[in-house]
């Protein structure tokens, strides 16, 4: 079967292809079983579809695709915080009545509200919640949990920002009985994710046993323990530069208006967007769903 020859060829170029795409492995195996029984004429379509999902840039063709992509991220975040609040390994840090538990509960509530809002906007087009999210070692201890949280929130900010220009500016659906501008709602979620990210960063800074020396904003492309791709360039890099980007609209901002600024300051002053394929790859790299 040529399909497996193709995969073999890809693996020569990209040895990690199957590791990065573990979740696709069963799908590809199933595809193999099916294609053995299928007419050859139909096979290229099925194969093309599988590869489009597996290794190509995923295309969000319309507003519903964008909303379902956002919904997946919100499902993930909501489940992440729900699991954290229930994790025995975090109970000593997220004690009832503590500021930390209050903050995590608040963030979880916001993510639940986002899920509900997006589901209402999508109606019958809403994708179902994945059966489960496995966050691996994320809840093994409090600092690790906060590091994961920072990664998800900073990624969330980049994800919404990356889609802002793809949402039609004139789409005004009725959601929950109210006429809303879809782009405005997306921006309102976007800034809430940024608030979450800022506060999680502050919590990491304030951790009793030697906090991370970082602020609520992203300095250069430093993750301070969060996966590097969260702060790296997306695809294409010219459209989605890394968080350490110093140039906006062709102007390098370390020298502007008669003043000079450090690379740290300039990178902090602007957040950068990410494409959906890179975002989903980041999620898949730390979460099984």
């Amino acid at each position: 079967m040529n399909l497996f020859q193709i995969i073999s060829e890809i693996e020569k170029v990209d040895p990690e292809i199957m590791d990065r795409l573990t979740h696709r492995r069963s799908a590809l195996s199933a595809l193999g079983d099916i294609t053995r029984k299928m007419a050859l004429a139909a096979a290229p379509i099925a194969i093309g579809s599988a590869f489009n999902k597996a290794v190509g840039q995923q295309t969000l063709a319309n507003a519903n695709d964008i909303l379902n992509y956002a919904l997946l991220l919100e499902y993930l975040e909501e489940d992440f915080y729900a699991q954290a609040l229930a994790a025995p390994t975090l109970a000593a840090n997220l004690t009832t009545g503590s500021a930390a538990r209050g903050a995590i509960q608040t963030i979880k509530n916001h993510e639940t509200a986002h899920v509900n809002l997006l589901k209402a906007a999508l109606g019958t087009s809403a994708n179902p919640r994945p059966a489960s999210f496995n966050f691996g070692t994320a809840f093994s201890n409090y600092p690790t949990f906060l590091t994961f949280a920072q990664a998800f929130e900073d990624t969330g900010v980049r994800a919404y920002k990356g889609q802002a220009t793809n949402i039609p500016r004139t789409l005004n659906p009725t959601v929950g009985g109210n006429v809303v501008n879809l782009l405005t709602v997306a921006l309102q979620i976007h800034s809430v994710e940024a608030r979450h990210a800022s506060h999680i960063r502050y919590m990491r800074r304030a951790t009793a046993a030697g906090g991370i020396q970082q602020f609520g904003w992203i300095t250069n492309a430093e993750g301070n323990g969060a996966p590097a791709p969260v702060y790296a360039a997306g695809n294409p890099a010219a459209t989605f530069p890394a968080e350490g980007n110093l140039s906006q609209g062709g102007l390098t901002l370390t020298s502007v208006g008669g003043n000079t600024y450090t690379a740290a300051e300039v990178s902090e002053a602007f957040d950068e967007g990410l494409d959906n394929t890179t975002v989903v790859n980041i999620a898949r790299s730390v979460v099984t769903f």
Partner: peptide
């Protein structure tokens, strides 16, 4: 959008 989220990070702190 690149500026807005930084303002939100500021506001939270």
């Amino acid at each position: 959008g690149k500026i807005a989220s930084v303002e939100a990070r500021h506001a939270t702190l």
